[in-house]
Design a protein around this nucleic acid. Structure first.
Lengths: 304, 304
DNA sequence: TTATGTGTTGACTTAATTGCAACGCTTTGG
DNA sequence: CCAAAGCGTTGCAATTAAGTCAACACATAA
């Protein structure tokens, strides 16, 4: 099976429109000979005439009609494809899939995501809530474009687009005994109060475990959960204290429902929010646009 | 708007299949550099990358996916088109439209038409019954491929593919007085009996009119119709006599229902069955095939 | 480390398209 | 009736596109 030269079909189409070879050639700004020859060799390859040189009213043969039907469909489809690619280029369409690690509350980024969706009406957005290592998994399996994580492990396969420091803080309810303490609270003194911890599966959980080991101390929490919201409620209801980054409880602090107490541990100050993607895998245009948008509109992602 | 080079899409498709440029090039039996260059210039024209050189598992970018979707649809459509054209070439499909002039009974050619339809299962056939000049009109307006006419006028615009002589004969019922006459019947003696004539719109009708003028005689028929069948019934029921070509009454003669009487007039011997089409307009393959089939299977069209 | 794989680049060759001028033909209009 | 304008086609030269070959830079695996 051979190939249909598109140029020849274009010529045939022009002949169908302008009825005669010379007029068609004139419209296409080519020499009539080019048209004549290309169509002749097309007919030779098909073993069939595609147009009737002696009929100026309806010069297209049945075989030619088949070709034209194909050509016109193809042409329309090509234009549509180019238009879609142009949309892609101008972010009028596209798809971004991200994961946000537990520890970064949906509320925090949802307003930014919403303004992004409004800015780029045609872009589909998919946000997956996941643990830190789940996010890495999703990245490597290419289910997502990038991940927003908190306190995740370093991974050489991953590229960090930007990171901001967000230390893990000690969070207590108003009126808690530790609020009266003058000198900075030590890790040991925390153990004397009922407290809650995040699962070890999360980045925050692992950070706490690390601190335990460094302080040769085994904490036994009243509550262990993988839900940041549950953790917040635990503290706000006065049941006890916990560790959380400031960014997750900013609102509650302003409302006085929660109080942050400085700690002397500098282990927790390693904690960072990171935007990660697969090393050496270029971001989609749409993904890059979302990333830019997030870093512009989210204070907690602003470079420090 | 520019044009998508098909070769580049073919290359992109091969890369999608074989994951790497070199393997794709190997499968297509081209040098890798050709693939590299063509794809690079495609990307340059689109202002977007179409494949990811660093990802051997899924090298196609979103823009590339759009292109491939288009390419595959186009490819399938091209194959289908070529297949349809091949069908045209091999008469597995097509359309033939003919007109048969009154005077050639449908029964006469219907068996031949039927065997043609059986031979070429995919061909659509359209048969129009028409008067001789109606057929010419249909030809010139290109509604039909060719016309089968009887005793039609000569027309320089028409090409006669084949013609066979079929004189207009005197047709009488068995036992008619003229059957007893020994010397050849003259045109004048016909007028003494009740007779029927075809409409002047038909070729046969005009032939009779011509004979009237040459013999300075005005015939007043008992019946004037444009239906050959009505004419036959008129004679068979013994109501009178008429003029018809042998080919339309062959069956009735064999059954003894109708008798042919020789006439001395040689005007009627001009009458011919003709296959006509527009001069210089080549017949469709399918039309040519039908014409061949008719001339092979119809005795009355056999060359004499 | 070597060895094998990737994509890319430069110089050259080859094939396909096109432009130009001319020819033979039919149709049109004085 | 002939001249003029239109048609499609062909030979030859020029341009452009696509291809090969060899070499390079880089990454990965043994």
């Amino acid at each position: 099976m051979h190939k249909l030269p598109p140029r020849a079909l274009e010529y045939l189409n022009a002949i169908a429109r302008y009825k005669t070879l010379r007029k068609a050639a004139a419209r296409l700004n080519v020499d009539p000979s080019a048209v004549s020859r290309l169509l002749s060799q097309l007919e030779e390859s098909l073993l069939l005439p595609v147009w009737d040189r002696t009929n100026n009213r309806n010069p297209i043969t049945p075989a030619g009609e088949e070709l034209l039907q194909y050509y016109r469909k193809m042409f329309a489809s090509e234009q549509a494809t180019l238009s879609r690619i142009d949309d892609l280029l101008n972010l009028r369409t596209g798809e971004v899939r991200i994961a946000v690690g537990e520890g970064i509350l949906g509320d925090l980024i949802s307003s930014s995501l919403q303004s992004f969706l409004e800015k780029h009406k045609g872009i589909q957005l998919s946000v997956e809530m996941a643990g830190a290592q789940d996010a890495v998994q999703l990245l490597q399996e290419e289910h997502i474009d990038f991940a927003l994580t908190y306190a995740s492990v370093n991974n050489p396969k991953l590229y960090c687009h930007l990171e901001t420091s967000h230390p893990l803080e000690l969070i207590v309810p108003p009126g808690h005994a530790l609020t009266k303490q003058e000198n900075p609270v030590t890790f040991h003194s925390v153990a004397e109060y009922p407290f809650a911890l995040l699962d070890k599966s999360t980045g925050m959980g692992r950070l706490v475990t690390l601190a335990e080991e460094l302080n040769h101390l085994k904490l036994t929490p009243r509550l262990r959960t993988n839900s940041v919201a549950a953790l917040k409620n635990f503290v706000m209801s006065g049941l006890g204290i916990t560790f959380m980054p400031l960014l997750t409880v900013r609102e509650e602090i302003e409302q006085g429902k929660i109080i942050v107490i400085p700690m002397e541990s500098n282990i927790f100050s390693q904690a960072k929010v990171q935007v990660l993607s697969i090393e050496s895998r270029e971001l989609t245009l749409a993904a890059q646009a979302l990333l830019n948008h997030l870093s512009e509109t989210m204070e907690f992602l602003a470079h420090k």
